[in-house]
Amino acid sequence: MRRVGYDGSGGSTMTVKRVPTPAGDLAWLVTDYDQVKSLLADRRLGRSHPDPANAPRFTDSAILGKPNQGTMEEEYEAHAWMRRSLAPSFSARHMESMRPRVRQLVDGLLDELVKQDQPANFHEAVAFPLPVLVICELLGVPFEDRARFREWSEAASLINDEQKSLAGLGQLFAYMGQLVERRKAEPGDDVISRLIESSSAGQEEKIAQLSAGLLFAGHETTVAAIDRGVMLLSLNPGQWDSLRKDPSGISDAVEEILRLPAPTKAQVNEAGLPRYALADLDVDGVHIPAGDLVMLGIEQANHDEERFPEPAVFARRESNPHLTFGFGPRFCVGAPLARVELTEVFLALTTRFDTFELAVGIDELSPREDQLVGGVMDLPVRWKVRAETGRQLLT
């Protein structure tokens, strides 16, 4: 019997089907948890294409919108170089060593937040600056340049304006290229300097492109996740009360925040992580020819009822093997850092405040529907400061 996936409205859908992409081209959408997990690690899927100019488009964004240039072998080599180069800087051990600094940054941002009149914009006060501060320190990017690369990142992430997206990505690449040259002359204790030191001459452009990708992914996705967590806990006060009484459940709550989509979405989208078939393959009885676009439905897989009972419910789960960070050789290199940041944010919120909630209804928020990563424009919140924090109990 063919298994079914979740369609976001309580119904079921075939696990492999032909659907239009956000750009309007056709692709195969895979939604079953086991199939998505298997395909995430399948070397027959990748980002390259034998005829990039005529390949199906995912979006009109310069990021993930079209296939990469180059052959399958070149893609594997580039990916292996990236993983090898970043492994020391992004290891779980190294990210754990950054926890005290992340905690310090969170506390400082919340100190400033509580000085503001209520309601205050949590998105601008905490959710955006925290990941930016962390990734800037990690990479060696000046924090004072954040307004510039924020503008370029948002332009690059546009899914419906190819020219603006290309221009934003180009400016981001150019900025990182200049920074690489500065780090060559004046190295520091940062990822870019270490990449330069460990690479052979002539790889500056490669390092700049990798660094631009890290800067983009290192803040955009985590900003959206922090905002999403505040929304979910505000809509689930029982979970908030449970965490406030027993902060040991924070890690489980973070995994659930990572699994669930933003509550601003009406339903799980009929889209997914774009990959191109590098060879003919059969998925759940469906033949997919080489060159076709395949969308791996991460959100749909994370709602698979067989893997996650009552998938739409925010709950403390004994097992939460979500696929938000991927699986296999392409598992997100920044996952340990994101988990540290999210854990510290929600630990601080639940130990520092008696109440912390949205100041408006979900339907009053403005989703960033034109952005690849999604998220919201603003997040008005209100709070009641706890008389005594429970943080000392956890240190």
Rank of each mutant, 00 (worst) to 15 (best):
G108D: 12
E151L: 11
E186G: 00
D190C: 12
A208P: 02
A174W: 00
T221F: 00
F122L: 15
L232Y: 11
L169W: 11
Q203S: 10
R99H: 01
L109K: 10
Q163R: 15
R228V: 07
P131H: 05
I226M: 05
E112C: 01
Q178V: 01
I159N: 08
L214P: 09
A167H: 14
D189M: 01
E112W: 01
S97T: 06
P100E: 07
N160Y: 05
L235E: 15
W152Y: 14
V114A: 03
D111M: 09
E162L: 13
A147Q: 13
L166A: 15
S193A: 11
D161K: 09
H219G: 02
H123W: 01
L138Y: 00
D161E: 15
I192D: 07
S157Y: 01
I192K: 00
A127T: 08
A155G: 03
A92I: 08
E197V: 01
L166T: 13
L139Q: 10
E197I: 00
A120L: 05
A147I: 06
V230Q: 08
A127N: 06
Q118R: 14
G229S: 11
D190L: 08
K115C: 07
A174H: 10
R182G: 01
E220I: 05
A125W: 07
K164V: 11
E186H: 13
A208W: 04
L214Q: 09
F216N: 06
G218F: 04
Q118K: 15
S153W: 00
E220K: 02
H123V: 07
G168I: 08
R150E: 13
L166S: 13
V180P: 03
S198K: 14
I196T: 08
E220D: 14
V223D: 00
L113D: 10
L113K: 07
M231R: 04
D145G: 01
A155T: 03
N121W: 07
G108S: 12
R101L: 10
N236L: 05
N160V: 12
A125Y: 05
V132W: 02
I226H: 03
P131D: 05
L210M: 15
V106C: 13
I226T: 09
E205Y: 01
V126S: 01
E137F: 05
A174N: 08
A201G: 03
Q178Y: 01
D117F: 07
F143W: 12
E112V: 08
F149W: 14
A185I: 03
V223K: 04
R182V: 04
D145P: 02
P119L: 08
P100H: 07
L109E: 11
A156V: 04
G140D: 06
Q104V: 00
R182A: 13
K206D: 09
A224F: 03
A201D: 13
L130K: 11
G140T: 06
S157H: 02
L215F: 02
A155H: 08
E112F: 00
A185K: 14
D161V: 12
V191W: 10
R148K: 14
V132Q: 04
S193R: 12
L113P: 03
A225E: 11
Q178K: 10
E205I: 00
H219E: 05
N160Q: 12
L169A: 14
M231S: 04
A120H: 02
S200Q: 14
Q163V: 15
